[in-house]
Amino acid sequence: MHLISWLFPLSALLLAPLLSGIINRVKAYFAGRKGPSILQLYYDLFKLMHKSSVYSRSTSLVIRLAPAVILTCLVLACLILPWGGFPAPVSFAGDFILLIYLLGLARFATVLAALDTGSAFEGMGASREVQFSAVAEPSLLLGFLVLIMHTGSLGLAGIASGITIVDWQIAAPLLVLVAFAWFFIMLAENSRMPVDDPNTHLELTMIHEVMVLDYSSADFALIQYGAALKLWIFGGLLVNLIIPVKFDVVWLQAVTFLGGMFLISLLIGITESITARLKLLNVPKVLVSAGAFSLIALIIKLVESYQ
């Protein structure tokens, strides 16, 4: 465990709120507006930290504890996420399963806190959240299986450093399939268009935003920050897959990785600007299709191995 490897999760914690700033800037550009500052989320978090809290009378300890648990899960997931050629502080065989399940625990806490308020709207959001993630998780894991087969490595570190330019030359179709699948799963898991509209103001149509309606002050700051980290984690997985240039020099790797993250947030911003929301009923279908993408990659990989 190198000391230097702690640098990456630390900078993830610092830089994660930037992503939503970039996305919002891109969206503003498409809409012909000037848009908020890139640092807006930092300002929001700072302001929220200095507010007094309001809790619903229906709630219990669950909603007070949930933000801490959610944020912890996401921070720990950051500790597992590698940066290209550099392994994460904690890396072991099968660590991606723990990563996915930590996200699962965060989701469980979010959903329970939503139900704690007794609000019908929050129940609705929670119900959608568990439905989509139940379909998204197998798809995500199938993508990992393809990458394990491809790199022969069981851990995230090996998978991340194992995908190089050569792999993109010989197996581009498979990697593109997985990347597409993951990109859509990222949009769904982070409540982005075309699955969920982060800017909507109608409770009935929300998924993630409706579940956090009853948070205030520091709790809400933790939730917002957690959401930023979650986007960072999914973005990081995708960057490790689609940016095949891997270095073992710290600053070079850091620059490529951050460049990749910038690219991902640009992509998300563009996607959000040019797509309309899917019908809610169609979301599982699309998520299953994302799984189908990975499965096709897996089948082709298997058939290829006979050559």
Binding site: S52, S53, V54, T59, F121, E203, D214, S217, A218
Partner: peptide, 15 residues
């Protein structure tokens, strides 16, 4: 946090 002691309660947000 600076204003952690100021906690008020209200009904759940009901639109």
């Amino acid at each position: 946090l600076p204003r952690a002691n100021q906690v008020s309660t209200t009904g759940t947000w009901d639109c």
